[in-house]
Nucleic acid binder design. Structure first.
Lengths: 206, 206
DNA sequence: TAATATTGGAGAGTCCCACTATCCAATCAC
DNA sequence: GTGATTGGATAGTGGGACTCTCCAATATTA
């Protein structure tokens, strides 16, 4: 399959495929001569994945590259690879400062939920930022609501973990792509559940 | 309070505050002369809200303006105002095409969950895109997983709805800001719950 | 009152990002 | 052999979010 066929298959301009090649999001095809390379189904799947990550998931090209690299070559320490991979996804929190307690809100929240508090994990910074943003905007999250959210998300996580593959490479792919691709589904479902509940409570319009 | 004090209070350059004024994200101060206006706590709060929306929540200036306008002046039809307001938030799905069944995956999903299917609601398009993206990327969501996510998000929505204020203006603010500000919290909590579950299953590193 | 600083307002400029277009010499395909 | 296509590199484009520069009209300060 030549580049024009590959581009047509995925529905992208050839120039864009070349761009992804240059940016390292797509591995080069098998070169058969100085001006010819052949691409296969792997390239098609990869391109679809790239489009999913840069489109609906909303990653920048840089972020997508970071995620894909970790999926392509996970380190030998599964725990830290998972942490880094998920940390490469947006929204991405700030770096931990020099303060003795860099993430006070997140720490308090996690302790009250009885969960691990590992300040190196990027999602802790995300949580801190999100909690601070809500409070700054005048809608702080009550401890009660936080507890409810924590219980519910723990249930979601337990479900996902039970289905995680045992083999490390597959586990990283499952975790990263599951996080990136399923989060939008969860958010859409929550919004629709709000609508459903609102209809039941407020009655149908018109 | 003059503009420089306002900017200092929120920690922004004066130029940026002027930019938000121009873009309609911040209402003008009370003009006391041709070159003087005074700003109050309302402006401080508003600016913090704008920063929360354009920062952690990730809205563009356009999106933030749309959201804030709906919060500022909700229509008389609460149901449609809520729908439009939440629809103004990202990721924002595509327009419904001319097809007889524009959102096949989303419709099937909602029907299997026993929820309302209203193709005018923007989150339906979001769900369609998210489901399509997952499938395109080679990780389609199984009906079983969808059912689980649906049950869990319904529980979240029920909790939120119970706490929605009765007065329309407050209800719109609660719903829109709750959606925009609490979604990042939920995502961070889910990622942390994954980590917590992973530690329990894989054991601590090192 | 005179000198200095600040303000509101508007326009232009900057920087980054995700593409997109143009070239070119080396093949291919007919 | 001749026109089309390719890989590869370089440059250009359009959008978004600021950021800078001016300016005349005040405020503030000396």
């Amino acid at each position: 399959m030549r580049i024009s066929a590959l581009a047509a298959e995925v529905g992208l301009p050839v120039a864009t495929v070349k761009f992804y090649l240059r940016e390292g999001l797509l591995h080069a095809g098998a070169a058969s001569s100085a001006t010819q390379a052949s691409y296969d189904d792997g390239h098609v799947r990869r391109l679809r994945l790239v489009r999913a990550l840069t489109g609906p998931v909303g990653l920048s090209v840089q972020q997508a590259r970071a995620v894909l690299q970790l999926v392509d070559e996970p380190g030998d320490d599964l725990y830290s690879t998972l942490g880094r991979a998920v940390g490469a996804l947006p929204p991405g929190g700030a770096e931990p400062g020099e303060a003795s307690d860099p993430f006070p809100r997140a720490r308090a929240a996690l302790e009250s939920l009885g969960q691990v508090y590992d300040p190196d994990f990027a999602a802790v910074a995300q949580l801190e930022r999100a909690l601070a943003a809500a409070a700054d905007a005048g809608m702080p999250i009550s401890p009660e609501r936080l507890a409810h959210y924590g219980r519910t998300t723990a249930e979601l996580a337990a479900y996902d973990l039970e289905r995680m593959p045992a083999e490390p490479h597959a586990a990283v792919e499952y975790t990263v792509l599951g996080t990136a691709l399923y989060e939008p589904v969860l958010l859409a479902l929550r919004r629709l559940a709000h609508q459903d509940a609102a209809v039941r409570r407020l009655g149908r319009p018109g």
